[in-house]
Every structure is written in C-alpha cells, then in structure tokens.
C-alpha cells in the first residue's frame, strides 16, 4: 500500500508553513547538490540529520527509505572506484582501485543522503494535498499543480486495480517464474492496467465536465502567517549562505 508515513505529526517542523519549507528545501538541496568539498558535504549531512531529529520522523520508515536509495548508491561504489581514472589507491587482486572513484562515490553518498534527509524532513512531513496547495500559492503553474494532485489522487485507485489484477491472477494459480508464461501474464497485466487507467481518465474527465469544469482550477487553501516561519527561514537562509561561503569562499 502506498502511504505517507511522515505526513502526520506534531513536531516543530510539521508546524512550520508549507510554503517556507518548500522554498528552503529546494534552495538547500540545490546548494548541497552543487557542493564539492568534503567539509561542506559532511556538515550538510549533519544539518539534515538534525532536521530529521527535529521532525521526529518514524525511525524505521526513515531507515527503509534511506536503504532503498543507498542500494542504488552501492552500485556506484562497485563501478566508480574501478573506472574512476587518476591515481591508483590499491589493488584488489588484479584490479586497480582508483582514488578519484572512491572520492566521487563518497561525495555522491554524502550528497544523496543529505538531500534525501532534508527533503523527507521538510517536504514529506506535509500531506500531499497541502504540498500542492503550497506550490499553487508559490505561483507554480496551475496545470502542473493539478497534474500532481490528480496523479496523487488516482495513484491509489490504480494501485487498487493493480492489486485486483494480481489477486485475480494468483487465485487462478499464477506463480511468477522465469518463463514466457510469466512474461506474457505480466504484459497482459500492464496492458490491462493501462487500458483501465485510460478508461478511468475518460470517466474522471466526464465527471469534471458534469460539474461545470471549463479548464480553470481553483485553490481553496489560505496560509496563516506566523513568526515561526520567518525565524526558520532566516535561520536556514544563514545556514545555506554559510555552506556557500565554505564551498566557494576559500576559507
């Protein structure tokens, strides 16, 4: 089941204004993504970890998410040190392991985890619908916001339909294996899902027409101003500037 394990909560971060969190998260992720120096990267990982603590995230769910990403990163650790070029650090059997590759893998690991942690802490801690409304309030194009919101709405319906299909296959004794029959069944499944999604889209569009939809979307949300938002924004802005100075300021 698709769910939002972090969306509900009463932590200090959950209480902050969604718009401020989104802007800060984007700026912060950007600065971490373009940073190169290890002190900066290590510091940002620490800052992200502090954010995660502030958001009082469910530890298990957090580890699960991080693990998923780090499995991908593991592939970098396998490939890059062997192909990185430059100085050779040591040999594993006959294979040379390059220093550049190790450094590059380390940077990718630090960056991804820092960004991921900050995004989970700042953005995954709001319900998706609120994020959509906040994007709207930030003047992101209506079409993109509603594309996001409607995708979010129907991903659950599609998941349900997917599960129905899988169950239907299972109760008739289908077991996935490495054979043509499995491939064919999976292809049918994907096809059916696609057909159902298109049908569903048609019906939703019809329902929208029936309720007078004329191509314009409306957003109901209004956000309350609060001092906490500004304190948070100023504080994070200072941190982001400090990171930038550390990275490019030759300190």
């Amino acid at each position: 089941m698709i769910n939002e394990p972090f969306a509900a909560g009463t932590s200090i971060i959950h209480k902050l204004g969604p718009r401020y969190r989104i802007v800060i998260a984007v700026l912060y992720a950007f600065i971490v993504a373009v940073s190169y120096q290890f002190p900066v990267l290590i510091l940002s990982l620490c800052i992200s970890a502090i954010m995660a603590v502030c958001a009082q995230l469910n530890f298990r769910a957090l580890v699960q998410r991080l693990l998923l990403v780090n499995v991908f990163i593991l592939f970098f650790w396998i490939v890059l040190p062997l192909t990185g070029g430059g100085d050779i650090q040591f040999y594993v059997g006959p294979l040379p392991v390059y220093k550049n590759g190790i450094l590059m893998s380390a940077r990718i690991t630090l960056k991804s985890n820092a960004i991921l942690l900050s995004l989970i802490s700042l953005i995954a801690t709001m319900p998706f619908s609120v994020a959509g409304q906040a994007l709207h309030a930030l003047k992101v194009s209506d079409k993109i916001v509603h594309l996001l919101l409607i995708s979010y709405r129907y991903i659950f319906v599609l998941e349900q339909e997917y599960r129905r299909l899988i169950t239907a296959a299972r109760i008739r004794g289908f077991k996935a294996g490495n054979n043509i029959h499995t491939l064919k069944t999976v292809a049918y499944l994907a096809g059916m899902l696609l057909v159902r999604a298109v049908r569903r889209a048609e019906r939703v569009h019809q329902a929208m027409l029936c309720r007078g939809f004329k191509g314009k979307y409306y957003c109901l949300a209004s956000f309350k101003p609060s001092y906490g938002n500004w304190i948070f924004t100023t504080f994070m802005a200072i941190i982001i500037i400090c990171l930038a100075v550390m990275e490019w300021g030759n300190i």
């Binding site: 959509g132 329902a207 939809f213």
Partner: peptide
Amino acid sequence: FQDADDQLFCPTVLEDVTFGPLN
C-alpha cells in the same frame, strides 16, 4: 456516477464539493 472514485478527484472533501460551485 456509478463509481464514486470517478467523481471524487480532489484531494480533500471540501475541495471536491466546492469544485462545482467555483466553476
């Protein structure tokens, strides 16, 4: 509609019910 999931396409109930009047 026969299938309520076709009819409720907004994230929250209030947004869905106001969709028509706003239009």
